[in-house]
C-alpha cells in the first residue's frame, strides 16, 4: 500500500547512501585500473537491476534483457559519432531502446503471448541482433558517419560534459557518472515498485487473472514495466560501452543473456539490491577466475547456478530478509511495531 511511500523506501535510501559513500571513497583508495573495471561492473549492475524490476516485480521472465542493453550501447555509440557529442546520444539510446521494447512488448502483451513464448521471443530477438550485427563488417554498413564494424564492433566516444562535446570525461569521472546513474536508477526503481503502478505490477505477477477481474488492464501494466525496464537496461548499455571503450556484437551472445538471469536468480527475485550485489560478486569472481587456469569459468558459474536453484531458490537477499524477520518474531520483546504493510517494499 501507499501508506508513507518514503517510509517504505527507507531500505532503498539506506542502500543508496551506502552507494554514495562508496562512490566518493572508492577513487580515493582504489587504483585507476580497478576503478575502470568497476565502471564495467556498475554498467552490468544496472542491467541486472532492470531485469530485477521486470522479472522480480513484473513477473516477466525476459531472456533477452541483454538485447536492450546492447541496443542502448549501439544506439549511444552511433548517435554520439553522428552528433559529435554524448548529450543527445544518451537520450537517443534510452528513447530508441524504449521505443523498440514498447513495439516488441505491444505484440507480446496485447497478443497475449504466453510466458514461455515470451522467453523464446526475447531470446530470439537477442540472437538475431547478434548474428545480424556480426555480418555488418563491410564499408557499406554505415549509419550516418558510423561504421558498424561487424564482429569487431565500433569504438564508443566517451561521455562529455553536457552540451560541451570537447570536454571528455576521464575514466575516473566516468566512474562517478556510472555510480550516480546506478544509484539514481535504483532509487527510481525502488520508488516505482511502491507506487500504485508498481503494486499492480506485483499483483499481476502473483495472479494475472485476478488483477484483470479487479478491472486492471494487465496488458498495459506489463507493457509499461517492460518498457521502463528496457530503458534502464539501455542506460546500463551506455555506461558499459563507455567503460569498455567499444561495443561489439558479443554483447548479444547467449552467454551474456544467461548471465543476466543468473545474477537475478542468485541475488533474489523480488528485491532490487540482491541482483545488484550478485552482479558485483559474480563479476569479481569471474575476474579472479580469469587469472587462473585450474577451473573453467563457465563450469564455476554453472555450479553456482545449480547450487542456488537447488539450495537457495529464493536467492541471497530474500533469504537473508526471511531470516532476519524470523529472528525478529522470535524475540518479541524487541519487536518494533510496524504500521502499514510489511514486506514487498523495495529493498
Amino acid at each position: 500500500m501507499n501508506s508513507g511511500i518514503l517510509r517504505q523506501m527507507r531500505p532503498t535510501f539506506v542502500y543508496a547512501l551506502l552507494g554514495i559513500i562508496f562512490m566518493f571513497a572508492a577513487p580515493q583508495v582504489l587504483q585507476l585500473f580497478t576503478i575502470i573495471n568497476l565502471t564495467t561492473a556498475i554498467a552490468l549492475a544496472v542491467l541486472a537491476l532492470s531485469l530485477a524490476l521486470i522479472w522480480g516485480y513484473g513477473g516477466i521472465l525476459c531472456f533477452g534483457q541483454v538485447a536492450f542493453f546492447g541496443l542502448g550501447a549501439y544506439a549511444y555509440t552511433i548517435s554520439a559519432i553522428n552528433f559529435g557529442g554524448s548529450t543527445w546520444a544518451i537520450l537517443m539510446a534510452v528513447m530508441i531502446t524504449s521505443a523498440f521494447a514498447a513495439a516488441l512488448g505491444y505484440f507480446i502483451f496485447f497478443g497475449r503471448v504466453s510466458d514461455v513464448y515470451l522467453g523464446v521471443i526475447t531470446l530470439t530477438v537477442t540472437l538475431i541482433f547478434f548474428s545480424l550485427i556480426r555480418r555488418t563488417s563491410g564499408p557499406e554498413y554505415k549509419i550516418g558517419n558510423a561504421l558498424l564494424g561487424g564482429f569487431n564492433g565500433v569504438s564508443s566516444p566517451p561521455i562529455n560534459l553536457p552540451w560541451n562535446p570537447t570536454s571528455f570525461l576521464f575514466p575516473e569521472q566516468v566512474f562517478y557518472v556510472a555510480m550516480a546513474a546506478l544509484i539514481l536508477c535504483y532509487v527510481f526503481a525502488g520508488w516505482l515498485v511502491n507506487t500504485k503502478f508498481g503494486r499492480v505490477c506485483q499483483a499481476i505477477r502473483e495472479n494475472e487473472l485476478r488483477a484483470e477481474l479487479l478491472g486492471y488492464d494487465t496488458r498495459l501494466y506489463k507493457l509499461g514495466i517492460f518498457t521502463i525496464g528496457a530503458g534502464i537496461a539501455a542506460i546500463g548499455g551506455v555506461l558499459f560501452c563507455n567503460g569498455v571503450g567499444r561495443i561489439t556484437p558479443d554483447v548479444f551472445n547467449l552467454y551474456n543473456a544467461a548471465l543476466t538471469i543468473i545474477w537475478v536468480i542468485v541475488g533474489g527475485r523480488g528485491t532490487l539490491i540482491g541482483p545488484i550485489g550478485a552482479t558485483f560478486a559474480l563479476f569479481y569472481l569471474t575476474s579472479a577466475l580469469g587469472g587462473q587456469s585450474v577451473l573453467n569459468n563457465n563450469l564455476v558459474l554453472g555450479i553456482i547456478l545449480i547450487f542456488f536453484v537447488l539450495l537457495v531458490p529464493k536467492g541471497v537477499a530474500p533469504t537473508i530478509i526471511d531470516w532476519v524477520n524470523a529472528r525478529r518474531k522470535k524475540a518479541p520483546g524487541r519487536v518494533r511495531r510496524r504500521r502499514g504493510s510489511r514486506g514487498e517494499g523495495a529493498q
Binding site: 499483483a203 502473483e206 495472479n207 485476478r210
Partner: peptide, 9 residues
C-alpha cells in the same frame, strides 16, 4: 484467485 505472495490487506 488471489494474490498469494501479498498480504490479505
Amino acid at each position: 484467485n488471489v494474490f498469494d505472495g501479498l498480504t490479505a490487506e
